[in-house]
Design a protein around this nucleic acid. Sequence first.
DNA 1: TAAGCAAATGATATGTTGTAACATTATTGC
DNA 2: GCAATAATGTTACAACATATCATTTGCTTA
Lengths: 152, 152
Amino acid sequence: MGRAEQVLAAAEQQCKQAGARLTDKRKQVLLALLHSNKALSAYEIADVCRELQGQTIPVMSVYRMLEFLEQEHLIHKLQLANKYVACAHICCKHKHGIPQFLICQRCGEVKELGADAAVVESLQRNIEAAGYHLASPQLELNCVCQSCLTGD
Amino acid sequence: MGRAEQVLAAAEQQCKQAGARLTDKRKQVLLALLHSNKALSAYEIADVCRELQGQTIPVMSVYRMLEFLEQEHLIHKLQLANKYVACAHICCKHKHGIPQFLICQRCGEVKELGADAAVVESLQRNIEAAGYHLASPQLELNCVCQSCLTGD
DNA sequence: TAAGCAAATGATATGTTGTAACATTATTGC
DNA sequence: GCAATAATGTTACAACATATCATTTGCTTA
């Protein structure tokens, strides 16, 4: 069983437990994200689905499916650039901390890390000191990945 | 001399030194940002200019002026939400570290902080360990400001 | 100071993203 | 099988962004 199939199985399981329906189309959207290791926009996802499965999904529907998948914690929405990536931890059981995303500016590849707890705590303190409250604890950083750096 | 005028004077100075022309229109765009403490989109800036000075600036031009102002380090482009804010440090002389923006999700108010050096360094290490390289050292965090939190 | 050049701005058109509103089609529980 | 609900499709449009070419402004230099 390939990586994508494993993840899909786990996702199915997870949805069942939550009483949510992982329909065929929703699976296809998730699959599109699993296939490309990159962050994709809703429009790009629609394209990938069309190429991969020959099925045309209206963008409006893609947005709705993305919304569903995000609710079920199967994907993340990257706010820098408004794109989406599959969660890197669908398969693992352990509790996850604050996600931190390294987004390659050149190729769009995304690496999902657990943010360092001490760093997050320190950030939090600074924010509170400034009279603000952290709303979405998700760190996103514009980066360049190794292969893009050396490749060209 | 009000705060905005002070900043404008400093900006003028800064541009002169760089051999750049801070034209009237460009000044108006900067002024619009200085006036509203919020992050504004290019379209919103055009609106503010129209209301404030009764002058209509085509959006296309606003984009170009924003580009100019960003090059001259007079404004920042927030990638979360694709909006713009005046740089909080136009007037001060000292060298600035990595900017960190706290963006209120409710009212759009933005607070610009200098990011804690230790935090940044720690982030850097994590990123390098993951085989990536930080590209745009600018932290943006979705927050809620004090008055929005208590106000409603 | 007028000519000529480059920078700045305007005007028009069009591409891209995102969403609202309503119609249609599945799916579920009874 | 029949409502009730959830999921998807359709259409239209609003907001955001940029490409391209025209026009104006300001500066340089002869």
